[in-house]
Write a protein that binds this DNA or RNA. Sequence first.
RNA 1: GCGCGGUUAGCUCAGUGGUAGAGCGCCUGCUUCACACGCAGGAAGUCGCAGGUUCGAACCCUGCACCGCGCACCA
Length: 928
Amino acid sequence: MSELTKTFEPQAIEEKWYAYWLEQRCFEADPASKKPGYSIAIPPPNVTGVLTLGHVLNNTIQDILARRARMLGKEVFWLPGTDHAGIATQNVVERNLRKEGAMKHRDELGREALVAKIWEWKEKYGGIIIQQLRKLGASCDWRHERFTMDAPYSRCVQQVFVDLYKKGLIYRGRRMVNWDPSALTALSDEEVEMKEQNGLLYYFKVEVVDEPGAFLTIATTRPETIPGDTAIAVNPRDPRYAHFIGKRARRPLPVENKALLPIIGDEHVEFEFGTGVLKVTPAHDKADFDIGQRHALPIVDIMHPNGTMNDLAGVDLAGLDRFEARKIAVEKLRELGLLEKEEPHQNKVGYSERAQVPIEPRLSDQWFLKYPSQEAARDAVASGSISFHPERWAKVYDHWMGNLQDWCISRQLWWGHRIPVWTRRFESEGEAAQIVAAWESGKAPYSTGGHHAVAGDRVIVLTSDPADAKALAVAGFQQDPDVLDTWFSSWLWPFATMGWPAKSEMLAKFYPTTDLVTGPDIIFFWVARMIMAGFEYMGEMPFRNVYFTGIIRDKQGRKMSKSLGNSPDPLDLIASYGADALRFGVMRSAPIGQDVLYDEKNVELGRNFCTKLWNACRFRQMHGGETEGEIDRSLLSSDDKWILLRLDAAIAEVSTALDAYRFSDAAAALYRFFWSEFCDWHLEASKAALNGTDAARKANTLAVLDFVLGHLLRLFHPFMPFVTEELWHGLGFSADLPEGQGGKTILYAHWPKPLGADFCEHYGIDPSDEAFASAKHDVVNIGRGLRRDFNIAASKRVAFILRPNAPMPDHEAAVLKLLLNAEELSLVDGGWTPPRGTPASLTPHGELFLPLEGLIDAGAERERLSKEAAKVGQELAKVRAKLADGHFASKVPATVLEEHRQRETAWAEKLGQIQKMQAALTEASPSP
RNA sequence: GCGCGGUUAGCUCAGUGGUAGAGCGCCUGCUUCACACGCAGGAAGUCGCAGGUUCGAACCCUGCACCGCGCACCA
């Protein structure tokens, strides 16, 4: 037991204990343990990332879950790691290389050199966020840190690709995809964010050449794509236009190629929108592409991949950016006299989630996946086998699962898992078949587990074995240049990190994981896909519970962002307030299922709270004595019993809240119990005995304090690991405990159980004891109220007189005296009459008087009493009115009726008392 | 358009049928021997609006308004 310093300095103890925990190997999970397993796989942060408040929220929750599970006797495995985050990481490194002048464009470096540069960068900076998590106190098993591009992990990814291909679920196809013209890659539907745009709707007319003099007016938001139009469509049921179907119209742009377009009928066209006439651009719009397919229309692609117009767009537009081209196209239409009007129009445009540029629908060859194990994945959540918190996200999940679109998994990037597909074109189909036949009877240029297929004169080989690459190259095969969507690797996270495809002992012990803590924004990207992968490859769900955090916003409710500068650095906050303060502050303000409005005030509150805890423990320590002495039931005061009952309630409340993932409720319960109940009442009350002369009573009071603190520190530990560990040792709680139960560290101290009936019986604690102590609190509050009403400074020590309803033991009265800051508290019997006009108030323990020794201000007392009488009279009238209502008396449940009657009695008694005092006052000094 | 949240004190939020709550902020007093990162007090709310159910509604039902977020191929 070392002496606690006067002020709490978090920085010193944080470092000390984290090092201690690592050295003692406290976070290391043993798959051979007999204890029940508990596991969490961290949502791997982007390897380029730095810690944000979002990470703080997310990882604090995981740490609370992990630490509590440890205290509950589980074998805990919290798996840490990072994600290679394809586009984001490649962007960051490319930007840095350009800034350094190392390159202007990635083509200068070439694929291999750039990827090498990114690895270099990753080795140098990729550990930052991991180090930061340690500062926060995260109790991860660092021996198992994983990265989604570790060699074994990469192999898992490619093996899954090969397997899904063999199952016919992965295919290559020429389809409309979401094209990011800035990153020059395809994206999945989920990576496209729809944004409201204030744009213009342009009305222009086209001449119907087969009906001289007839024109059709078309409304479009994208006039720059006119050169790519290959038809005009109307709804065949539209009487205005049906008769034009089959005729031809002249496309106005490009001016040098005014092609004739067929007018076709298609149900897709809405009557009401615009003019009801649609220009069809199969190469640049998904819906138009579908129409094109239905009508076998040609596809004219008028754009380069980077979003600039190509030669097919015509001389006026070629080379221009698509938005610049829009302006020019409009000008041209105006010059041609074909532009009728333009009107403001609000529409939604897909943006690349990352690059924040508008997506261009583009026809390209990509790899697609039909999701596996859809049914099992959907059922698991619908049936509650996997439970979502808050539950409402299950509905969102279910809706998405019911409308699954094939997943575009190829990306035209360099950083990521290379698609494990090699192809070679042969002279003829015959030669291809011959080669393959030779492989089938002899030696193929790839290892077992690989797979090949023939498509005409092309032979395709899939293999996940990195050693095969050379052999295939020698055999003249070329690997697909694309990489896989990052999420195609992260969806394997819960098992690819634990040794899969081997049947590892980690998997046996810790799969499925227990809890997943993540944001609802990646419910489709990650959560849903992990569930499908889990069922497909492990035959089982990847996790049992999913807790969705809110999003951290600033005080004004805006998302945190670098550009707004409203995103504080958690490390700065830890430096100035301490990690425990940050954790507790954030958790206290993060209600389940709601966004968190971040305010530094919350961290300040956390800091104040840690300091208060520190000082309460110092207070205990300053009174010396033995740690955790025997509690003698015969010496328990009502305050002791009260705080034990409150502790019991707090244990239950905190445990229930944590079981239900209601972290802010648990934090609030801890706050209330410690501050309002323990410090404000019990600690203050205990001073009577601690500063008294009765040594036995003092020792017993300390024993109770220790009992409560010992439980309190354990309840707090998951929220505030550092300060609780320091105090645990500082107060000597670790001294007598076995190593695995709190002796070495509070980490393994048992999570408190509700005290229970046996405990209460053993110590002679009865629920009525709680009432007795609460009644004492009332006496104190009323006494302080009297002081206030008569303007007696809190520091001025006055005498109080109590006429108790029942005998009041000396040690109980001593507490009242102390809390009233009274010079003296005299107990008088029923026969005693106060000097006339003495301020008095009825308390649950009897009448309390404040004798003012001739200083009575009769006017003030009269005023006070009449104010109080009015208030009490009002309450009494309210409850009487209810009771007088016949409906009420006849319909209300007996308990409620009884409660109202008691209330009536209480108010009536109170009023009678006040009236008696008023009468006494009048006798003393008749009102003027 | 459909769906999901939300609307309670100046701010952030608890409160799911029976006497409106907490933290912060504000105001007053206090350096009282653990803590001024503190202590003791105080002011402050027609519980978004309108109906309905009920003896009784912040709470249940219906409708509406406003805020936020998803989903959806109206160009």
